[in-house]
Design a protein around this nucleic acid. Structure first.
Lengths: 328, 328
DNA sequence: TCTCGTCATGCAAGCCCTTACATCGTATTT
DNA sequence: AAATACGATGTAAGGGCTTGCATGACGAGA
């Protein structure tokens, strides 16, 4: 920077001003500085800059995993939005279990804020997050604290819509919900609304009609094994907590010679790409996954600009997409 | 830091030493410093640290996209390895077209090095990368420069294996290669070896037998339309440049009532999760995708430690996984 | 007992910027 | 013409850390 200043015949202060608030330097000076910079290939040192200004444009994002359609889509949305806002993403897929090295390592210092999604309760991690003292936004979680920004998905309306749709062809006693982990926030919410909606339709449901497992195809297949046995003359209706599970159920059912949607009507959740790749195509509740990431980033950046406003809650809409597995 | 020093009755230098090379401070002093740090909740300021040491532990990773099985798997491998080595990933999915904002923005300064994968030629981007002056590792690319670290996939052996496998049941004149973009490095390599292997089997192949498109399911479906017309009494053999394409072909063929593997035998490439989800399951060439990311990180970190060693080339093995679409 | 190597620590320079404050020349006002 | 305001720039003080060099204490070898 000194070299640039010298070459342009100004002081470093002017160079700095040229860089940060060009309006404050005279036109011809600006030009000389500009040239000097180009000539010398000068690039400001971010670390020195941040050291002074205390403003980094990096956002940490902590996800349970970065693998699979859902998270990679979320990440994509977040990444795109971050770029749009001039921020950058530092990723970590350690929201699974135990503490995250991202948060114990020095890079915490890089981050201006943190977007977190934790699918399974993890005290240790949560503590660590609070200790980091970073501005926070949580994605899709039950946690409710003063001044905390949250982004949620409207599980209730999506679930309700799906259940009501299934009920047009399926008797409520033949309805099943196949969830992910019981402690998982989304699964819990969806299960709850599933039951409520059945109740509203005038039928109480038995515990047997709600099942928990995990978010995998394998669990779907396994769940299907016992489900197919229940199929009688009337069709069964299944709402799965995500598309993976739905797909597993579908596959196992098809292997067992069950007709879809004739004997088994299925609705998934998320509308990942998988849903439109299956045959028949999977009916599913569309979750604006990329938006979830984007909105998280937006909330966070907003908070960074505006530290002490109250916490916000953004709920993103969901909607049923009817395809082959539950169509006529 | 000054506060800590004061509380521990030492100088800041000692605190710094305690943090960076604990062996250089006496045991009881260390303890006092430790306590002071804990007491005051002190955390070193990364920016100041890096400003001094010029060593950031952040690696940029530039991919064409971060969406989809392949990239998210790659990213996962890279992320895991980075963490293992005490590094962190700054992601950008802008390797598509035009310049990348990641590289023009200040965050470049955060990065100690850059891992790049560009699937389509992009002069502008490449220039930008060189200008950044960052230590580099390129993933899966043709570029060959002195002192550049590269990580490749052994396209040749995988392709050869797949073609030879298909040839056991399919006549070489009924063999087809359905590629991604013609300019894409992988597609080009695979196409070349496809032709060579056919030639080695004693048959020359017509241009018609090698087709280019993109890496999508849609392209696969489209390609299948003309392919299924060619099916006579003898089966067709198709090698697709990735699993997505293979899946598209498969789907279109099944929709057209073609028997797989009876009339059409398919082998995909990559062995993404998709491959074992289809029915019949997709035969495919396994690419160690996560390793690809991990190895890129490893090479880069190694170079960071060891700046002026010659460029390395790591080729990761591939191998054919035979499943239903090409089995008996 | 004297000298010297070692170890633990302190001193202070410097990493590269930003910015409050001071300075100076010119334009505006009265 | 004097007083005032303002715009453009320079000066220098940090921001929080690392590290070469200096210091002092202490045990070991001579």
């Amino acid at each position: 920077m000194e070299d640039v200043a010298l070459a342009a015949g100004v002081s470093t202060a002017t160079v700095s001003r040229f860089l940060n608030s060009p309006s404050r330097v005279a036109k011809d000076t600006a030009e000389r500085v500009q040239n000097a910079i180009r000539q010398l290939g000068y690039r400001p040192n971010v670390f020195a800059q941040v050291l002074m200004t205390r403003k980094s444009r990096v956002i940490g994002i902590l996800l349970p995993d970065i693998h699979g359609e859902f998270y990679s889509e979320l990440l994509r949305g977040a990444d795109a939005e971050a770029h749009r806002l001039g921020y950058h993403l530092l990723i970590s897929s350690e929201g699974g279990e135990g503490p995250a090295t991202m948060l114990s390592s020095n890079v915490v210092g890089f981050m201006a804020g943190l977007a977190v999604m934790i699918t399974e309760p993890n005290e240790q991690l949560w503590l660590q997050i609070k200790e980091s003292g970073l501005p926070l936004v949580v994605i899709d979680e039950a946690i409710h604290l003063n001044g905390l920004d949250r982004v949620l998905v409207d599980n209730a309306s999506g679930t309700r819509e799906a259940v009501e749709h299934l009920l047009t062809r399926v008797d409520s006693k033949n309805m099943y919900f196949v969830g992910g982990p019981k402690e998982n926030f989304d699964t819990a919410e969806r299960a709850k609304v599933f039951v409520e909606t059945l109740a509203k339709a005038g039928r109480t449901s038995s515990d047997d009609q709600v099942r928990y497992g995990d978010y995998t195809v394998e669990w779907g297949r396994k769940a299907a094994e016992s489900l197919v046995k229940k199929i009688g003359p009337a069709p069964l209706g299944v709402l799965a907590a995500n598309d993976e599970i739905a797909f597993g159920i579908m596959q196992a059912a098809q292997d067992a010679g069950i007709a879809i949607p004739g004997q088994l009507r299925i609705v998934g959740f998320d509308d990942t790409r998988l849903a439109s790749l299956t045959r028949p195509q999977l009916s599913t509740v569309r979750v604006p996954t990329a938006d979830l990431g984007a909105q998280a980033v937006r909330s966070l950046v907003d908070r960074l600009a505006n530290g002490d406003r109250p916490g916000t809650l953004t709920t993103l809409p969901t909607r049923l997409v009817v395809r082959g597995t539950s169509a006529e």
